[in-house]
Nucleic acid binder design. Structure first.
Length: 670
DNA sequence: AATCGTCTGCTTTTT
DNA sequence: GCAGACGATT
């Protein structure tokens, strides 16, 4: 108890922190100090004498888990805080499965397939399964499979339909390859806990107090997992905001939070409504908008920090003008208001919308950062490297094996690989097993056989060395890469020397982080790979790119972030709400998306819409989003960009415009 | 095996 | 309007 007290909490926050036993639902509106409450509640539990080992806090992202860990470490004894389990859903599942997945017929050294690996496998299966005249979009298949898994429909897919057959084969093949995809991590964990009482009870004995962050984003399986772990104690504290549920299309069930009482009867319900981020103009705009959603838990955000400036709705002639106007205005405000580039964010529904903004910002030499885009882990060389590592740990991992079987080229032709793959499919084995099959080898030319034997020997050799006790895995990996001449091959395949250096440095970076991982963990290469597979570069981007610059970000990715000045662009019917949402009946979720966008703003907010927009290459007339009509007139001011930009320069603003221009020119010169 | 050219089809993306 | 996929070409 010593050294811990509840710092400056408002009454609701304090209730949330002090409620220790039984189900607890914390409805935490945007900017209401949620993370603080969670970490303080964990500290409070420990101060009450609860063992930190018995506390589990689950989040969705590594970033959130790390942040919580750091904050807790600053609050209580390090030795104590370390014993608390803070983990993402998926990492927790990996941990559970690595111990007992053999009970489900998988091997404990299973590989984890990311979405790219998954797609590769699905494509392969579709081509093998579909008849000549049959077509199946692999993306559609992937989504359906994911949906099926999230609803635990794994039992007996209808194999008469193509999709059913693909699903069945995909799942069977994953098992042959000793691999699991992201959905499997949850599905198999739930299955394991459901079917094996001993495992279930072991984990129930381990965790007595559960906390779940972003509960509105949990899917069915995640709720099931929590329910299993909570057992009869029902010490489940969930934190979330139904109004910020924007991942329904990925399987998130808002009903988990809306019908929390049905899953965990008689909970304590706490509403956090005092907002510490935005002005009341912004909050009232958000409040009024979201009231139009029928199914929600009523909340009313308020702030003690005053009304602030009205929210602007700015009409543009077209998307070209939208980009120009915003870029110019940011340049101007940076000077006249003394704002930093960092203080501005431009939010949009679709990534494509960032292009024009980007172009304009670049012209004005305004630094910017785009969140999103290609990930470090999508880079060819990174995937290759991880594939080599993965094959050493699980030679049955076909996706990784096929990736590296002839990279760098070692005389195993596409044709040979195709034959091995076909045989492996027929015999229901992995490709690696097929390589040693007599049937496969009998009619192969000597050259091909030599190449294959060389490859098998190479893997055997390094696999053995890797598994020797006390082996230096990092050195072994380096030697493997050197032996196969990977880096030379990589550089040879690059168009420019610069690209070669870039790619090489990705490999070095990866090796370096493995060294770092090894210096503080005993899990070895397996643990490192797990971490890599469950890690999202984009989340780190949000930290790394804290540097100077205007942020360009999608509404989805902006959740959880905040900026002093926000522009939300393309608030048009068809963009927000997106055309597709109307067909799919998910307009409420689009409204929540706008709500999330609005509540990102701390001081000022501008919503823009265009009368014309280039869509799919040609100009299309647009109308303002129907959501704009739902905003409270008393907190809104309407403007027209065309008029502002062509307005005669009056004296006062003339001075500032001149100053802005001057500053701009100085930047160009410098 | 790589590169070029044509076709297609179009949100969002915590792991 | 443009990226990504796929097939034809060297």
């Amino acid at each position: 108890m010593a050294g811990f007290r509840l710092f400056d909490l408002n009454p609701e926050q304090e209730t949330a922190v002090r409620t220790v036993n039984g189900p607890l639902l914390i409805l935490a509106g945007a900017g209401t100090g949620k993370t603080r409450v969670i970490t303080m509640r964990v500290a409070f539990l420990i101060a009450q004498g609860i063992s930190p080992e018995n506390i589990l806090a689950v989040t969705f992202t590594n970033k959130a888990a790390n942040e919580m860990r750091e904050r807790l470490a600053a609050m209580i004894e390090k030795t104590e805080s370390r014993k608390v389990t803070m983990s993402t859903f998926h990492a927790l599942c990996v941990r559970i499965l690595r111990q007992d997945i053999d009970k489900l017929g998988y091997k404990r050294n299973f590989s984890i397939y990311d979405e790219g690996d998954q797609m590769g496998l699905i494509k392969k299966i579709i081509t093998r399964t579909a008849a000549q005249d049959e077509k199946l979009d692999p993306n559609v298949a992937k989504n359906l499979i994911s949906k099926a898994k999230n609803h635990s429909w794994s039992a007996s897919p209808d194999e008469q339909t193509l999709i059913g057959a693909v699903y069945a084969r995909y799942q069977a093949e994953l098992k042959t390859l000793n691999a699991v995809d992201f959905d499997d991590l949850l599905l198999l964990t739930v299955k394991l806990l459901a079917e094996h009482v001993d495992v279930r009870e072991r984990w129930q004995r381990r965790f007595h107090y559960l906390m779940v962050d972003e509960f509105q984003d949990t899917n069915r399986l995640q709720l099931e997992l929590i329910s299993f772990l909570a057992d009869e104690r029902k010490n489940v504290a969930v934190v979330g905001d139904d109004d910020q549920s924007i991942y329904g299309w990925r399987g998130a069930e808002v009903s988990n939070i809306l019908e929390f009482e049905a899953h965990f009867p008689n909970p304590t319900v706490v509403k956090l409504e005092q907002n510490y981020r935005s002005t009341n103009a912004i909050l009232n705009t958000a409040n009024t908008l979201i009231k139009n959603n029928p199914r929600r838990r009523p909340k009313q955000l308020w702030s003690a920090s005053g009304d602030g400036q009205k929210v602007r709705i700015i009409q543009m002639n077209d998307d070209r003008q939208e980009a120009e106007f915003i870029s110019n205005e940011i340049a101007q405000r940076q000077v006249t208001e003394g704002a930093k580039w960092d203080d501005f964010a431009v939010l949009f529904r679709m990534n494509a919308q960032s292009r024009l903004i980007e172009t304009n910002l670049r012209q004005l030499k305004i630094p910017y950062k785009i969140i999103g885009g290609k990930s470090f882990f999508d880079k060819r060389e990174v995937k290759d490297f991880l594939a080599y590592a993965s094959v050493l740990l699980n030679t049955d991992d076909d996706v990784s094996l096929l990736r590296i079987i002839n990279t760098p080229a070692r005389g195993i032709s596409a044709n040979t690989v195709e034959r091995a793959t076909a045989l492996s499919a027929k015999k229901k084995t992995s490709v690696f097993a097929a390589l040693s099959d007599e049937q496969f080898r009998s009619d192969l030319p000597t050259r091909a056989l030599q190449a294959i034997d060389g490859f098998i020997a190479l893997l055997d050799n390094f696999e053995t060395r890797l598994h020797q006790p006390l082996s230096d895995q990092s050195t072994i990996l380096r030697e493997l890469m050197a032996k196969v001449g990977y880096i030379e091959d990589l550089k040879r395949s690059c168009k420019t020397a610069d690209e070669g250096i870039q790619r090489e440095s990705s490999i070095f970076e990866l090796m370096k982080s493995f060294d770092e991982y090894q210096s503080k963990s005993v899990e070895g290469l397996r643990g490192f790979l797990d971490e890599m597979m469950l890690r999202n570069e984009r989340e780190e981007e949000k930290d790394d790119l804290k540097g100077n610059g205007v942020t360009l970000i999608t509404l989805h990715a902006a959740k959880g972030l905040e900026y002093p000045h926000v522009y939300l662009i393309g608030v048009e019917e068809g963009v927000l709400p997106h055309d597709r949402s109307k067909m799919e009946g998910t307009v409420d979720e689009e409204r929540r998306l706008l709500y999330v966008g609005i509540t990102r703003a701390q001081k000022t907010l501008g919503l823009t819409w265009c009368r014309d927009r280039i869509k799919y290459g040609s100009a299309m007339a647009c109308t303002a989003s129907s959501f704009l009509k739902e905003l409270p007139p008393e907190w809104i001011v309407h403007q027209n960009a065309g008029q502002i930009m062509s307005a005669p320069v009056e004296h006062a603003s003339g001075t500032s415009k001149f100053a802005a221009l001057k500053a701009m020119l100085e930047r160009v010169d410098g």
